[in-house]
Amino acid sequence: MSLPIDQRSLQLARRYLQVANGLLIPLYLLVAAALYGAFIYAPTEREMGDVQRIFYFHMGTAWNSFLTFFAVFVAGIAYLITRKSKWDKLGAACAEVGMVFTTIVMVTGSIWAKPIWNTWWAWGDPRLMSVMVLWLMYAAYFILRSSLPEGDKKYKFSAVFGIIAFLDVPIVWMSIRWWRTIHPVVITSSGAELAAEMLHALMVSLIAMTVLCVTLVALRTAQRLNSSLADEVFQQLDQERVSRQ
């Protein structure tokens, strides 16, 4: 008995896995370089001390949490136009990885903020608040997903929410910035001048985190594609069993 499996979907999953596989060795090298850059190569910051080194990973993950959000938006539009479930799988994978990265941004930011700003959580900082809102939107996206059964409806609604949430991000950013320029600014960010070595370490970390992000997205998309294929096979076997009885 042969089971008719969607060969194109299987191929696609395989291709995503190939991408993830191909990136694995560059990823190890880049992460090693980023660790070296952040902890050994870059000089210790004069005022903040060693805790500043967290900044390299903080920036790297922050940039990616916005990138994945954009990817969710693009995948959402692609799904609404083509109605192919592969786009939903990609969007969901991006949102997952994005949410993990956003969480890392907030955690690393808090660890940095405690000694520097003397508080874990600064309600006054516009960037921090924007990331918080981003995290809330990701969370809402998954709550919506988890309350719908698999199928076109779920993919459509997730896509619509992803698009609306992405359109909202620049407005959130602007509103929080204005809000903070109007109120007394309690916390000012330190100067953005970086030593050359610091800039190099930052660049390596940015690239390493981006490659990590792409690898994880590729892996999760492949997993999602495969798991829906597996579900199909189970369903077919079930039907087969019922029809034989």
């Binding site: 939107m137 709550i143 919506l144």
Partner: peptide, 17 residues
Amino acid sequence: VLLPILLFPIIIPIILA
């Protein structure tokens, strides 16, 4: 339950403004 969970993060700019 879902409506406020989805809606309030999106309308944060409205609340602020």
